[in-house]
Amino acid sequence: MTEVRPRYALYYAPRPDEGLATTAAQWLGWNPEGGRTRRLALSVGFAPDRLAEITAEPRRYGFHGTLKPPMALTDDVSEADFLAAVGAFSVKLKPVTVPSIVLAGLSQFLALIPAERCVELHDLADRCVVEFDAFRRPAGEAELARRRAAGLSPRQEELLVRWGYPYVLEEWRFHLTLTGRIVDAGEREAVKTLLGQRFSSFVDRPLEIRDLCVFRQSAPDRPFTVLARFRLGGGRLVSTEVWRAS
């Protein structure tokens, strides 16, 4: 029997008291901070079942922006070791301000993305990928095959082999995913209009990256939840159990 290992990821996620976190949890029907399910808000023109389908994939991961993709830990590293390393790493960093975010379509799904490339954000993601690669259990053949099935460029293949994921470093693009793939262009545009209304308070405005979050997935069929958050440059662990605004 294959051993089930939890997966860990380094993500940006808004703090629970921020409007973006509340709006995203209402849209996805899931709050990864504490692992709480929420009833999807009804929307004129969309059946509840269809909205649940559209949001199923991002709901499983929780509202976030990936900095270090999900990974299992090596045999000689414990969860406590990993958290301690993330905490020590976060002390050396500074908060990042993305000047503006916009709602956009990416490969048939919809997400909030930076309006322009943010050098400081790219640097943060690159450092997360490189710094914590020693903690990563190498990807198995099944996972590598699944990634390759999507069709990778030669450079993406190199990144997959070296870092366990094809969309890192120069191939990385920060995005806060709001839907799964929506094949029908007309439906996708309608959903984009709805999202534009729901997230109007956050579009064309700055995004403050204040924390480095550790998300955990206990098993492949389980959703990701926030295990801990570390203030960038603050040095104090803020956990989901004893979270305090600052």
Rank of each mutant, 00 (worst) to 15 (best):
R137M: 09
F89C: 04
Q108H: 15
K92H: 11
V130F: 09
G105D: 12
V77W: 07
A139T: 13
D76C: 05
L121N: 03
M71H: 09
A80H: 11
L124Y: 03
Q108V: 02
E120V: 02
T97G: 01
S107G: 12
L106Y: 13
D81T: 04
A134Y: 10
A72W: 00
F109K: 08
E143S: 10
R136W: 06
R137N: 09
S100N: 08
D126K: 12
P114C: 06
P114D: 04
I113S: 09
L144N: 06
A104P: 05
S78I: 00
A125K: 02
P95N: 02
L93M: 15
P99S: 07
R127Y: 01
F89P: 01
I101E: 07
E116Q: 15
S90P: 05
P95I: 07
A84P: 00
E120Q: 14
F109S: 06
A139S: 12
G87A: 09
F109Y: 12
L124D: 04
D133C: 05
A80Y: 06
S100V: 06
A84M: 10
A84H: 13
M71D: 00
C118D: 08
V91I: 14
A88P: 00
F132M: 05
V102W: 02
V91D: 08
L124N: 02
R127D: 13
L144I: 15
G140N: 14
P95K: 04
K94G: 09
P138L: 03
L93P: 01
A134E: 14
K94P: 01
L112I: 10
F89K: 05
G87N: 08
I113F: 02
R127C: 08
R136Q: 04
D76N: 11
S78Y: 01
A80T: 15
F132Y: 07
V86E: 01
T74R: 15
M71V: 08
F135W: 12
K94V: 11
P95W: 05
G105L: 00
F89W: 11
R137I: 00
A80G: 07
L83K: 11
D126I: 01
P99T: 08
V130P: 03
H122C: 12
L83R: 14
P99I: 08
E131W: 07
G140P: 06
A104R: 13
L83A: 13
R137D: 10
V130A: 13
A142E: 15
A111P: 05
E141L: 10
L124E: 03
L103V: 08
A88D: 15
E79M: 05
D123P: 00
A72M: 05
L124C: 05
G140A: 09
S100I: 07
K94R: 15
A142D: 14
H122G: 12
L121A: 03
P114E: 02
V130Y: 06
D123T: 13
E141I: 09
A88L: 12
T74F: 00
C118R: 01
T74D: 10
F89S: 07
D75P: 00
E116S: 13
K92A: 15
